[in-house]
Every structure is written in C-alpha cells, then in structure tokens.
Amino acid sequence: MNARSWILYSAARVIIFGVILAVLLVAGLDVWISALVAALAGLGISLLVLRKPREDMAASIAARRRREPERSDDEVEDEQLGRREG
C-alpha cells in the first residue's frame, strides 16, 4: 500500500477545503453556508485536479483486496482464540 498517495491526497483535500472556506468566511458568508460551499467546491476541484493521487489510492485498495482472502467472522474469532482447525 502506498501511504504517500494516501497522505498527499488527504492533505490536498483538506488544504483545498480550508482555502475555499477561509475565502468565503473573509467574504462575510455565514459559517454553515461557507462550509457547505467549500465542501462541494473542494469535492469538484479535487475530482479534477487530484486525479493521479486518487487513482494511486484506488490501485492500492484493489491490490490489498487481491492479497487478502475473505474470511468469515467465525474463522477470525477462532484464530484469535486459538481454536483454529487444521
């Protein structure tokens, strides 16, 4: 899993949201309206601008899902309790 992509994407999203929120608050808009507009605008901007980090994150999620076989809750609990069969 590529932690750098996760950190870069998350930090960029927070920064985009923060900048838009600050601009709207300085412009004198209500806090709730500013937050809502900043969240929606940040989502749109991140979809357009942060395509590469988002694709890297999706690839790391897909790779991790391929590596780990799905196990039932009973199997996990039995393993943790030391009652694993065969």
Rank of each mutant, 00 (worst) to 15 (best):
M1A: 13
M1G: 15
N2P: 12
A3P: 05
R4A: 11
R4K: 07
S5N: 04
S5P: 01
S5M: 01
W6N: 04
L8A: 09
L8E: 09
L8F: 11
Y9T: 09
A11F: 14
A11Q: 07
A11G: 15
A12E: 03
V14W: 06
V14Q: 01
I16F: 03
I16S: 06
F17W: 05
F17R: 01
G18C: 13
G18P: 01
V19I: 15
V19A: 13
I20S: 09
A22L: 14
A22F: 12
V23R: 06
V23K: 05
L25T: 08
L25I: 09
V26N: 12
V26M: 14
V26P: 06
A27Y: 09
G28S: 12
D30S: 13
V31P: 03
W32I: 05
I33D: 03
S34Y: 07
S34L: 07
A35H: 00
A35G: 08
L36M: 11
L36N: 01
V37H: 06
V37P: 00
V37M: 13
A38F: 03
A38K: 05
A39R: 02
L40Y: 01
L40N: 06
A41G: 07
G42L: 03
G42T: 02
G42V: 03
G42Y: 02
L43T: 14
L43R: 03
G44N: 08
G44H: 07
I45M: 09
I45Y: 04
I45H: 05
I45K: 01
S46C: 13
S46Q: 04
S46E: 03
V49D: 10
L50N: 04
R51D: 10
K52F: 06
P53T: 06
P53C: 05
P53S: 00
R54H: 07
E55M: 02
D56S: 05
M57N: 01
M57A: 00
A58P: 02
A58F: 08
S60I: 01
A62R: 13
A62T: 11
A62W: 02
A63P: 00
A63H: 08
R64D: 08
R65D: 10
R65C: 00
R65K: 14
R66P: 02
R66M: 09
R67H: 11
R67P: 00
R67M: 13
E68W: 11
E68D: 09
E68C: 03
P69L: 10
P69S: 14
P69Y: 11
E70P: 04
E70G: 02
R71Q: 14
R71L: 14
R71N: 00
R71P: 01
D73F: 15
D74L: 10
D74R: 15
D74T: 12
E75C: 08
E75L: 12
V76Q: 09
E77G: 00
E77A: 06
D78P: 04
D78N: 14
Q80N: 11
L81N: 12
L81W: 06
G82K: 05
R83D: 10
R83Q: 07
R84M: 09
R84A: 14
E85N: 11
G86E: 14
